[in-house]
Design a protein around this nucleic acid. Structure first.
Lengths: 206, 206, 206, 206
DNA sequence: AATGAATGAGGATTCATTCAT
DNA sequence: AATGAATGAATCCTCATTCAT
């Protein structure tokens, strides 16, 4: 895409070389997460971020080339966080079906604990769509693999794994939105149980 | 029809009084759908809309008080369209299970035919969140009712209908995104079939 | 001023030819007075005027070439009104000194009764300065004449009449503003009496 | 110093923190005075101001929240300037009558030297009426006190001081307008002398 | 590394006026 | 004469980004 393999000055972008620098860069990232999360990308100004971070306006650009760049950083940071969160919580699952139930509860809890970050991911669709696609694609791939493995082990019915993976992800995402973000009065594991039957046995009679 | 009887002074907003007026207002709405859909709310300027509509800049404001207002109009317009689309397509379903399968296919087709409008609805979350919540809440309510009715009739297993409804909506939405918007090479009914087994029988063995 | 003795179409400006027309033109002028008077020239839109007048937007331009034109019409209309009002009220004055006292009271009353029009005249300074200058110049001239006559008759001390005229006008205008527009709780003739001594005897002792 | 502790979010308005900042803010204020003064509030664009000030458009908003805000700043700035100017010039007056004569001359001179600022104050009536009222009210109060004191000392006839104060202010303002702004060919002190007799002895004979 | 002043492209909205009916 | 739809120039203000200190 770079037509002229430009020699543009490499900007002032710096990986922080000092501990102080690292701290500052971190404060900014935290602040960005909080501001983007609560006000959204477009309603958040760089000054909102720097004010929250307690640094001067210009300092922002010492660590991030642009507003969009921090946003992207946040999204991939989120990806890692989510995966960690979920995998930690389903680690002890005896089989895939239990893992699914635990995963749903974990997802709702995650959404509830990290409403802000949850929002950031969704907004990525409109700010940095490639990050968004990537985020869910990584998810879907590993999900697909898990289903395939489980099917092979005979823990679940075999089927079209990719499609099932996307379907299940959509389920979790919306349950996270509804019972994590919008209505956080219900007990997550209660929801998980409620949907559990659907997962295990489907809608069909018998 | 006045959704949010805001007390702001009514400005000069007018329902078109002539046929010509109605035509113009419609051209603008169409143009807005197309522009918002392809570029997103924030990247779309009023001039983009009016250029596409083939009217002068000021004409926009003869029919819509603000950029956000058209956007909202579009979202609720979408709500109606989607519900019509789906209900038309599952009209002949013999039972709920078939209706679900047909509904998924219909959803994917809808997303594919109306990629732009699909995007608008999702972006509503960040531009007019109340419209977004309303959009899905209406959906969920009728979905919940349908499940309850079907359960009563013995067509499906009985269960927690609201939770199942949200889960199923999430499923459809993501399948629409994945196989309608992002990857439109697959046959929608093929996808519907693929997920059908999950719906009917769940993941559990036997 | 017309450099090319232009053949520009004479616009659609019409002296109303029908009684209905006259009525309409008048409703518009009344409405303009009321709107300009209460909201000021810049805050008043043509639509405010036509709405108040109960006619359609376009109708305005059937009778007045522009917003500024009505405003000017109003200012000169005002000039006549004021002069009438004052002269009526000091008609029976036995001498200039009495006339002055009565004139001040009349001025305050006028300002109070016609707060809106009073405001229009003052705003003329910034919208149609020539009208404003003319308005006061006409006033000042006749005032000057009156003083000269009175001095000749021996009713008042002789002096520099033009300067005195402007001074006295300023006095009235500010008293009208203060005790007519801003604070209308005081009795106008009481104010006139209060200032009367100043006029008659000046500030000097004896 | 916060006059109207409005509850609006404080935006990013900043008192300049550097000397350079102070200089810039001042250039802008000067430019605003000159532009508003010559073209009036509504005919002056922010770009007119910044061009005259020799800064970029955005810089304006670094120092003033809005067009109206600078205008108000100017009006109160004017209040101080006028009071200083006058009080300096009548400082040596042996008594109130002399002070009055000198005050009138000073006022005319001030209007002549600061035509622009003079205009701004008058326009305040239509742009920021509260500033206008305040401007003259402060004036009237101190004027009233001065008259009362002088009367007590026996320097002038005693009378209704508030009313006299407003009358005298009106006189000065109009003389300033007529012989300061509109017609600046006459000698101010000549005018003052001309009106002096009116002030000292009134219109009455003997 | 940190600061905050300066920049100016960009965009939404208003409104006097015109014109076709 | 009356209407109201259509026009588009004009303008205020925002905010990401740069730069001198």
């Amino acid at each position: 895409m770079n037509q002229h393999s430009t020699l543009k000055k490499p900007k002032t972008m710096t990986e922080p070389r000092t501990a102080r620098g690292k701290r500052t860069r971190d404060k900014i990232l935290q602040a960005a997460a909080s501001e983007f999360g609560s006000k959204g990308f477009h309603e958040t100004g760089i000054t909102d971020i720097t004010k929250t971070a307690g640094v001067a306006l210009g300092t922002f650009y010492t660590y991030y080339k642009s507003k969009e760049i921090v946003f992207r950083a946040l999204v991939s940071h989120m990806g890692e966080l989510t995966r960690e969160w979920i995998s930690t919580r389903i680690a002890g699952a005896p089989d895939r079906l239990s893992a699914e139930r635990m995963g749903i509860a974990a997802f709702i809890e995650f959404a509830r604990e990290h409403k802000d970050l949850y929002r950031i991911v969704m907004e990525a669709q409109f700010v940095a769509n490639d990050s968004y696609v990537e985020y869910y694609s990584i998810f879907a791939e590993s999900y697909t693999r898990n289903l395939a493995d489980a099917a092979k082990k005979g823990e679940i019915r075999s089927g079209h794994d990719e499609e099932r993976a996307w379907a299940l992800i959509g389920m979790s995402v919306f349950l996270g939105l509804k019972y994590g973000v919008w209505d956080d009065t219900r007990d997550p594991s209660e929801i998980a149980d409620a949907v559990s039957d659907l997962l295990e046995n489907g809608l069909g009679i018998k």
